[in-house]
Write a protein that binds this DNA or RNA. Structure first.
Length: 243
DNA sequence: TATAATGTTTGAAC
DNA sequence: AGTTCAAACATTAT
């Protein structure tokens, strides 16, 4: 469920409820979700992996973490964390993290950090990357205040695509390679979006969970890399290690 | 059936 | 005081 493109899909799927009044609220959330009762949804937004339900003077932030799911106009056989009921349907959220953000949503988020946002600012991302040249690129790609929405799958696919070894030191990567990596963070995210909508996402993975490199036929290496120790899949032959 | 996985926060330990 | 790290949370496919 979790990476940025999946949240964009959710945002599109709930558009039918924009401007609608919440006529019922249930769920096992520990928060005071009753405050949504009879309130009108102004907009659905997203920032990376955050799904945002905006009301007049506050916003509900949903984060699905690793296992969260949702159902629209249907139910799953599990405890619901939050169910919003409307005149003509319902949204059900399961095993997600819910928070309230008070006031203007724009005061909580920098939209230029979200790789799928219209206001995405690649130059800003570049400046942030170069600020800390010693960190490994596999860690930096996962940082949500630089590449909001990029998750571990997208990380692996981008690095394979631009032929950079995940354990490369950021500051040692040639500038042109940094540029294409940043460019691909957005491009790949939108391809991910299209493929996911067609239920054919996994078919297009070239590195993530793969056994063999389609470029050179050598084995794809699986390693837990960086400070974050997340799975990296890469080809030692095709991806250059800048150290 | 045990394990690992598209993630993040928290608080203890250093 | 800043960093590092394990634990916690929760679900499902393999």
């Amino acid at each position: 469920m979790p990476e940025g493109p999946s949240i964009v899909i959710l945002k599109e799927e709930v558009q039918q409820f924009t401007g609608k009044k919440v006529i019922g609220v249930e769920g096992n959330s520990k928060l005071d979700i009753d405050r949504l009762q009879d309130k009108k949804i102004i907009a659905f937004k997203s920032w990376g992996k955050h799904f945002l339900i905006c009301f007049d003077d506050f916003t509900v932030r949903i984060h699905f973490l690793l296992f969260g799911t949702y159902r629209i106009n249907e139910r799953k056989d599990a405890q619901v964390r939050m169910r919003l009921t409307f005149n003509d349907g319902e949204i059900n959220f399961y095993s997600c993290s819910i928070k309230f953000l008070e006031g203007d949503i724009n005061s909580h988020y920098d939209w230029t950090e979200d790789v799928m946002n219209d206001n995405w600012d690649p130059e800003k991302a570049k400046a942030k990357l170069l600020e800390v040249p010693n960190k490994l690129i596999c860690d930096r790609l996962l940082e949500q205040d630089i590449f909001s929405g990029v998750g571990n799958i997208i990380k692996n696919e981008i690095l394979y695509r631009v032929r950079i070894h995940p354990e490369s030191k950021t500051g040692s990567i040639p500038e042109s390679q940094i540029d294409s990596l940043i460019e691909q963070s957005r491009i790949y995210s939108f391809e991910f979006l299209d493929w996911k909508k067609k239920y054919e996402l996994k078919k297009h993975w070239l590195a993530h969970t793969r056994k063999t490199c389609v470029r050179c036929d050598l084995p794809i290496i699986k390693n837990y890399t960086g400070v974050k120790k997340r799975r990296s899949f890469y080809c030692e032959n095709c991806q250059i290690l800048y150290s």
